[in-house]
Amino acid sequence: MTNNVSSPTILLIAGHWLGAWAWDEVLEHLTAAGHQAVPMTLPGLDERDPERASRTLDDQARAIEQTMTEAGASEDRPVVVVAHSGANAPVSLVLDRHPELVRRVVWVDSGPVAPGSAFAPDAPEDLVESPLPPFDALGQQASLEGLSTEALERFRARAVPEPGPVLRQQVKLTNDARRAVPTTLVCCSIPSAQIVELADAGHPMFAEVSTLERVDLVDLPTGHWPMWSRPGDLAQVLAAAATTPVN
């Protein structure tokens, strides 16, 4: 791992139902500040893909790897990977396979997944896809704090159903080197102090955090979608994380 890249490429990956478009406002701030950022749409979340409902976590991980390659990622020029929410599963796979290509991973209201876990292990095999639920139901699962009516309308209009295979697939991790990748947790809907307590207590959602060798925690109080509720502030946090020395 090297720290001689003062402003590495930042790869932006949003969570369930979202594509590259989710980062538009954050990307505007990062670009204005002189940072090279690349938002991507994971396989299964491109509404133009006729096979999207059959895409898997492995497909998503390979797409991330390809985007990293296109961005020039190497051991000498590793990239920064930003994973929001449910993007944590494919990004965890990429960290397991290519830790040397990642300068820093930034989890946005999210965190690394534990080996053998699946987002919805009890989802039936005949579940083809999972659409964005009504906002009253979604708000019981994740905080909608800070989202304007316009943001919610855009979310509803542009959301793409999550493929069933992505929800059911177990994440198989074998390379402990992934835990040595410098890590930033951007804590939005859950304060950092509470996340530390949950990690120390072995909570399944945060247990993997306690295994990380180098982790910084940043509080950005808002809901689960800070790219819309606090885009400028999130861009500043990402820029700072991306340029923080890793040695």
Rank of each mutant, 00 (worst) to 15 (best):
residue 173 L to Q: 05
residue 191 P to C: 05
residue 2 T to K: 06
residue 79 V to Y: 08
residue 224 H to R: 08
residue 42 L to H: 02
residue 163 P to Y: 04
residue 217 L to A: 13
residue 56 T to A: 10
residue 71 A to W: 00
residue 114 A to M: 11
residue 120 A to E: 15
residue 53 A to T: 14
residue 4 N to D: 15
residue 196 V to P: 05
residue 15 G to D: 07
residue 82 V to I: 08
residue 188 C to A: 10
residue 39 P to I: 00
residue 162 E to F: 12
residue 95 L to S: 06
residue 174 T to F: 14
residue 59 D to C: 01
residue 115 P to L: 01
residue 103 R to K: 10
residue 146 G to W: 04
residue 107 W to Y: 15
residue 120 A to W: 10
residue 24 D to F: 06
residue 135 F to I: 12
residue 123 A to L: 15
residue 106 V to P: 10
residue 186 V to G: 08
residue 43 P to T: 05
residue 94 V to K: 02
residue 220 L to F: 01
residue 73 A to H: 01
residue 243 T to V: 05
residue 54 S to A: 15
residue 89 A to N: 13
residue 90 P to E: 08
residue 84 H to A: 10
residue 237 V to Y: 02
residue 150 E to H: 06
residue 82 V to D: 00
residue 69 T to F: 11
residue 45 L to A: 07
residue 7 S to V: 06
residue 153 E to P: 09
residue 71 A to V: 10
residue 240 A to N: 10
residue 23 W to D: 09
residue 50 P to V: 04
residue 136 D to N: 13
residue 35 H to E: 03
residue 126 D to S: 09
residue 57 L to W: 02
residue 170 Q to K: 14
residue 29 H to T: 11
residue 171 V to D: 13
residue 83 A to I: 11
residue 21 W to E: 07
residue 97 R to E: 08
residue 37 A to R: 01
residue 101 L to Q: 08
residue 157 A to C: 06
residue 133 P to F: 08
residue 194 Q to W: 11
residue 124 P to R: 03
residue 129 E to N: 10
residue 203 H to I: 03
residue 177 A to S: 13
residue 200 D to C: 06
residue 53 A to D: 14
residue 159 A to E: 13
